[in-house]
Write a protein that binds this DNA or RNA. Sequence first.
DNA 1: TGCCAGGCGACGC
DNA 2: GCGTCGCATGGC
Length: 274
Amino acid sequence: MDTCITLETILATDREINLIKTFECGQCFRWQADEMGIYTGVASGKVLNIRQEKGLILCDAIESDLPFWRNYFDLDTPYDEAAVLFSQPEHLKICAEYGAGIRILRQEPWEALCSFIISQCNNIPRIKSIIRSLSALYGKPLRQGLFSFPEAEVIANLSEDDLSPLRCGYRAKYILDAARTVSEGRLPLEELCDMPADEARKKIKTIKGVGDKVADCFMLYGLHRMDSFPVDVWMKRALKKHFPPDFDPKTLGNWAGLAQQYIFFYERSSKGEK
DNA sequence: TGCCAGGCGACGC
DNA sequence: GCGTCGCATGGC
C-alpha cells in the first residue's frame, strides 16, 4: 500500500492531546497504528493519517478540514478545569494523572451507537474486526483501502442474512433495529442532547439490545454528553476495589464522562498488577 | 481448552 | 424490584 506518508500539517501540540492514550483508551474502534507509530482512521467519511512527533501532532489533513479535526479531537474544551474536581478520591486522582492527555472524541452519533451495540459481551479486537467488516461490506470506499462507516439508512434496508458475514451473532438483530430507529427519525439527536439524562436514556433504550450501559456509551461518545458515566464490568471492578462505597459520579457533573474514561483506561492498563 | 469479553432480554420469584 | 440464564462468536 502507501509506502511513504508525509505528515506536514500541525493539528495541535502534545500538551493539548496525547494521541496514543486517546486512541487506545477504549472509546473508539477504527484507529490503527502502523509500525512507525502513524495512526490511520476514518471519521465522517474522511481518512486521516496522524502521529505524535517532537512535541507536535502532525497529520495529512487538508487546510479546510482542520476545523473538522480539531472539533473531532475536542481540542477546544478546557480539560484542565477538571483537575480540581478530580483531586479526590485518591484513586480518581491517580487515574486522572495516568490518563492525562486523553480527549473524548466527538464521534458520529450513529457510528458510536452501532459500535457500542456491537461491543456488548465482546472483546476489543473482535469489536474492531466486526466494525471493519461492516464498513468494508456496506460503507463507501475511501483512500488507502479504507471504507466509511455505513449509513443507518443503508443498514436499515438489510436483513439478518446480509449481516451474517460479520459473524456478530445475536447482535445482528440489534444492529438492524438501531438502524431502522435512526433512519426513520425516531431518535431525535438534538433533543437527546438537551433533555435530562434519565429521560434521554429511557428514549435510547427503546432500541432492542440497548440497555443502560450502551445508552450511556452512546450519550458520552456519540452525543458528547460529558455527564454520562457508563459502567461496565471493568468499571464495576474498579469502583468496588478502589472507591469509597458512597462515591457518586453525579457529583462530577459534566466531567463525569472524562472521569469514567480515566478510570476505565487505568483499570484496563494495570490489570493483573494488583 | 476453557474462560471471558466495555450486556441485554426474558423469565421466575 | 432483583437474581439467573441463554444468547453467538472468537481472542487469549
